[in-house]
Amino acid sequence: MENKTVTMAHGAGGRQTSELIDEVFKAHFANPDLTADDAAVLVPPAGKMAVSTDGFIVSPAFFPGGNIGKLSICGTVNDLACMGAKPMYLTCAFVIEEGFPMEKLEEIAAAMEKTAKEAGVRIVSGDTKVAGKGQVDGVFITTTGMGEIQEGVQVGGELAKPGDAIIVTGDVGRHGCTILLAREDFGIDADVTSDCAPLWGAVKDVLDATHDIHVIRDATRGGVGTVLYEIAGQSNVGIRLDAAAVPVAPEVKGVCGMLGLEPLYLACEGRMVIMAPKEEAGRIVEALRKCPYSRNAAIIGEVTEDQPGKVVMTTEIGTQALLPQPGGELLPRIC
């Protein structure tokens, strides 16, 4: 390709647009269902279908442990997996800033190819637009995924029951911590990588072990803490957390200690929160720990009847504190 960067012509719909699509996207996304026409023609699943769409903006677009391409696949297939759906098809739309290096775009596409393959999903349709310099920041990606809901699975944020165990599939806050460090020039050289990963494999193994599961939710923006508050509200239950049981990588803990941040509120991109009857918890954790992206799965608390809508944390020194509500400023309270 003669141009080293993306130009406005790449988005104009002419020859250069075809070149970009052929040489960058088709080269990576090729599969029998990928269409060159206006719409893909697909065989629908036999059972119920889940559909999800997500837009991805991340600054920086490349970060330790992944890039926006990988993120755009993981985010959507994980949303499907949370409904107990096996990801099947995916469409993607790019908005690229004029002047974006072609090489980087290539890298993004390669990451998407690799991740889609791993997640078992086919990219079937796409769109490319170029926006003028400064109108977008690098590249924005929107993906839409379709998946087949496994038979007999019924999960939802309103289904948590008192007595359920709360499981997190791995250590929390790594993605948020990674991005914060990459974005802000703190001068901290902590070895933190994003947890960005496709989780259908892990969810499938859990579903193979038991169908008796009430909630699966991926903890992305807002982190595990936000997810817990959402579910406590939706299901009108209380949540009791054992702070000592929440897995946090030592580097993340170090950074959070330094910045005075709560790891439970840092974003994850490869972590699920699962709620299921206590009796199933052991089996679920066992299944999770065999999967590559959930080796640190742990039971971190339980669903309770009292304090509906609230998340109560038994801290490491034994006090029982309300996990601060998500959102809003972190205001000091100590007088």
Binding site: G257, L259, G260, L330, L331, P332, R333, I334
Partner: peptide, 10 residues
């Protein structure tokens, strides 16, 4: 500027 929330009180 009070940095770090409650930890700055400690």
């Amino acid at each position: 500027v009070q940095v770090g929330g409650d930890i700055s009180a400690k």
